[in-house]
Structure formats: C-alpha cells, structure tokens
Nucleic acid binder design. Sequence first.
DNA 1: GTATATTGTGCGATATACGAACAAATGTCA
DNA 2: TGACATTTGTTCGTATATCGCACAATATAC
Lengths: 251, 251
Amino acid sequence: MQETDFVSGFARGLKVIEAFGETTPKLAIADVAKLTGLDRATARRCLLTLAELGYADYDGKFFVLTPKILRLGHAYLSATPLPHVVQPFLDKLSEEVHQSASASVLDGTEVVYIARASQKRVMSINLMPGSRLPAYCASMGRVLLAAMPEDEARTLLKQSVLKAFTPGTKTDPALLMEELSRVREQGYAVIDQELELGLCSIAVPLENDRGRVVAALNIGAPAASVPASEMAERYLDPLKGVARLLKSLLR
Amino acid sequence: MQETDFVSGFARGLKVIEAFGETTPKLAIADVAKLTGLDRATARRCLLTLAELGYADYDGKFFVLTPKILRLGHAYLSATPLPHVVQPFLDKLSEEVHQSASASVLDGTEVVYIARASQKRVMSINLMPGSRLPAYCASMGRVLLAAMPEDEARTLLKQSVLKAFTPGTKTDPALLMEELSRVREQGYAVIDQELELGLCSIAVPLENDRGRVVAALNIGAPAASVPASEMAERYLDPLKGVARLLKSLLR
DNA sequence: GTATATTGTGCGATATACGAACAAATGTCA
DNA sequence: TGACATTTGTTCGTATATCGCACAATATAC
C-alpha cells in the first residue's frame, strides 16, 4: 500500500498517544507495542519522539504523558466556536435550576463533553470537557443518535459494547431503536439511572440556524431529589429555552 | 540529520494540530504551511491524514478539527492520577469557601489547568482542564515558578512575553524575581487583578509525600467582594489544609 | 543461575519528504 | 468585463528517512 496522501508515521504516533488511558497511565515500550499492534521498534521511535518533543517523560523504563499533550485537545476546544458560545448559557442554566448542565457531541459510539457547568457533584466519575460516555445509555447520546438516520444509528449501536451499568440499563438493540423513535418524536430523552444508580438526566438536541443538530444539552440530577418522572416537567422548558436562544447564534 | 530514533513525520503532524487555535479555527493547506513552516505538500499530507483518521473535517478548502482530537488530551487527563486525586478536594474546597478552586501544573511558560471546581463565573474567559494562562501573572504560576531553581525561573521569564493585561500587571523581570522570592518565603502567592480587572486569586504549592512541588492550588474571587488584602486571611488556611491532606496521597 | 521477558541496534526494502513545475482558482486593476 | 498577477492546490521524480525484521544485549523473574 503506497498511499501518497497519507503519513503513516503520523497515524502510528497518534495511535501511540491513544494507548495511554485510565488503566494504562505509564507504559513501557513493549506495552505500547502490544496495545497498538505496532512493531516494537516503531513504538519505541514514536515514544522517543514524544519524549524528545516534551509530550512525554521517560525514566528509562516507562513513558508517561506530560501536560503538554493537552495542547492538542485544547487546539480543538479553543478553535471550535461551539464550546465558547454554549458555555455562558450552561452557566446560567445550571445556576437557575441548581443542577449540572452540559453540552456534548458524538464521536463514534461515544458522547464527548465539550462544555459543562457543574453544581455539586452527583456522579461518581468526574465529567469535564473531553470526557466520554457511551452514547446508548446517556441522555445526550440518545438525543444525538435519534437525530441521525435510523440505519446509521443502528450501525453505531451495533458497534457499541452494550454493557449494563445498572440493573436499569437498556442493552437490547431493538428496544434501544424503539427508544430512539420515542426520543425523536417527543424531542427529548430522559435517562433513569441507566448509567449510574442515583443519577437521572434529561437532554434535548441543539440545532443550528439551519436546523441541523450540532450538539445536545442536558441537565443531570440526583434521583433522590428529582425522580425521573419529574425531570421533564421541571427541566424541559429551561433546556428548550436555551436551545431556542442558541439556535440563532449557531451558524 | 538522520536521527534514527525520531519520527519526523509524527512531529510534523503534531505541529499541524497545534497550528489550530483560538484565532485559527479553520485553516486551508497554505495557512497551515505558513503557520508551521512546513512545505505545502507536507502540510497537505498531514492534514489529509488527520481527515482520513477522523481527527479533522475537510470541505475541499478548509480543515477543521473534530472532537475526536479530544481523545489525545483525554489520554493525559484520564491517565494521570493527579487530576483525579485532586478533583474531589477542589469540589469540597470550592463549596466551603463559595469561590472557584483550581489545580494546575506548568508547561513551559504557561500554567495548565488540570482540575477545577467552579462557582459562579467571575472571569471573562472560561477556564477548564487544558486551559492555559501565562505563568508570570497568575497566582499558580508564581507559586510554580517560585518552586523551581532561581535561574530556571529567570530563564522561563525571559522566554515569556511579559504583556500587561491590566494597569497592575507586573512585567519587569527583576521585580518579578523579587516577587518570586517573597512567594517562596511566605509559601503562597496573591494576585491582585494583574490578569483581569476585578479578579483576585491566591495560590499555594502542592507537594507530594517526598516534598517535591507537583502542582499548585488556587482560589479565585471577585475583587469587589474580597479585596486582595483579605485573600490570605480568608483562604490561606483552607488551601494549606487541602495541600496538607493531599501531600500524603501523592506519590 | 538459568529462564524469560524486555529493550537496543544494524540492515535491506520500502515509503515518505522535498522542491519544482504545473494546474486551478482567486483577486486585482484598468 | 477582460487580462494579468497572485495565491493555492496537486502531481511527480528522486534523494532520503523510516519500517520491520532478526539478532544482540540487557534487565527481571523464578
């Protein structure tokens, strides 16, 4: 394969960066080779390149990413208008309803947070811009999946690992597709502790001025204080209101 | 130069990603070539590689980064223990004092936020993990600079663009070095509207169990409600308390 | 101390970068 | 509007850097 418009060395390097993760914070050369499927020599060269450029530290045995890596993600967050435009609205919304409010987009089978205004923490995990959740069991994920053509949504669900995080997690693809139609019809999605016990959330789509869904907005609340059945009546109007205001601001 | 342990294609690609930023969200091939100093042909190959891999979108004219890029920064935030360990403490601290609390590390001449718990917004800009501020005029920056050998700090100041953001911004290197000694001695730094009018902040170093400074913690407050002169008496103890608790948790 | 795993290094084959030349589009000015 | 100038994108041949393999040299485990 001699694709003239493709720099495989670059692609390999990016793969190496992504090899680092929650469960793999410090990696030796052989680890990276195994995780990425690259040759050891190649993995080594990429890692040494990262170290040379200051994106990683090397103690002779293990490699660890440095905060310089954040420049790469930051390039997106600061370059993309959406996060900036949305943030102040989330702040205001969050303060009004005294719950956390977030915005996210889809990346493959995952929801990626691009902005967030958090009140007191309810979730066990800490969400921030760049954080990811599986789309099929997150309120914003449902909204974003519902916004795409049915067959594409079905394909994404097929690619997803449909794991049950709680007893309530819906994992049957057919059931999920039904749920997506419902979401499409009613214009919002409510999740009742499918991702984490004690956490409910409601999400609405965020359209740009041409009517294309560009992101999702949500509000999360502790199930103890706001049962799922009340999510819509409490938070749907505020969410819809913000979505309406933003619609004209998004090109 | 035939460095065998360096993948220049990878390095070039990373440069291309960093070409995208706040003022340059969408770039044509020639723009990237100019910004990075790469040959147009090379820039094109890197950009097409990014597009091919889904890290960028291409409309035939302009390239735009996609949220997939966030995976790279996320690799750091989720792989590094520090942000995770610190976050809950910041949440608690922020709630106690009713102000925003953050943690950051140094990357070159800049402070990089690695965790944050925000109350009502006071700053005009929106800080989040990955955000950057110039070290010389940020409270956490002063603390981190003060923690390093004097000559290294001096070198970093030399590399910094010492711009006055407000009338109060200290930009004289000699004066800043004096300020650093003071910070080193008293164990904390207070910034009085040097970065933005109306914003005061106080920061302390965060040491690991071996006494090495691994990050800085701060609290920011509106100057209107908390004058700079009161920052220390109000917030120094809470900050020091958190730093002490964290010390034993950080290896 | 041997066995096992992991890392470092030369070498040939192959893919990639460079620069220049070409093509296409865009902008400018009479 | 039309012709020129300028910028931008693409293609191509070649010099060169990179890949993957096999082997050597460590480090680690038992």
